[in-house]
Design a protein around this nucleic acid. Structure first.
Lengths: 71, 71
DNA sequence: CAAATGCCAACTATAGTATGTTGTCCGCGC
DNA sequence: GCGCGGACAACATACTATAGTTGGCATTTG
């Protein structure tokens, strides 16, 4: 059973990533995280840490708060 | 060198906790987290995960976003 | 078809837990 | 004033659980 907050976060990441025309691999480079990890985050498979949330937010040029909104 | 985002989060938790007159131990009970962990979070010693952020936010009766604001 | 994504197993790094000790502050009684 | 006990937070050490990484192959997508 996936945690709703992880689903919410993952959906926000995927939505913004696609809106910016980035592949998961491109985002992973920008965020300095592993390629497969981005996919796991979007699919709510991992309980991400705050520092990595910030990395992804910065890579998407948004604040973390933006990634905590419902999309 | 402590990460600024962890410091910011920790300060928000401490500020709201004290505003609500809770000890770290009381908050740890409410959040169902370890009693020493709350201190480590407030002192920016740990890189907290999203699910635990939600637990603390719920224990403090605020949204996670509230814990990401500067206090 | 090429690019993108998902899956897998195994590994490393660290988050989170657990127990006990130490230090500080405060209120109280002597 | 001093010593004590209680409450609280920080600290120390060690452990368990899981986050994050890796590289290759399979599957899906446009």
């Amino acid at each position: 059973m996936k945690q709703p907050i992880l689903i919410q976060f993952g959906e926000a990441v995927r939505t913004l990533r696609k809106a910016q025309g980035l592949s998961q691999e491109q985002l992973s480079f920008k965020a300095n995280l592993h390629r497969t990890y981005i996919g796991m985050i979007e699919r709510a498979e991992k309980n991400i840490t705050l520092i990595n949330m910030e990395k992804i937010a910065n890579a998407l040029n948004v604040g973390i708060i933006e990634l905590l909104k419902k999309y």
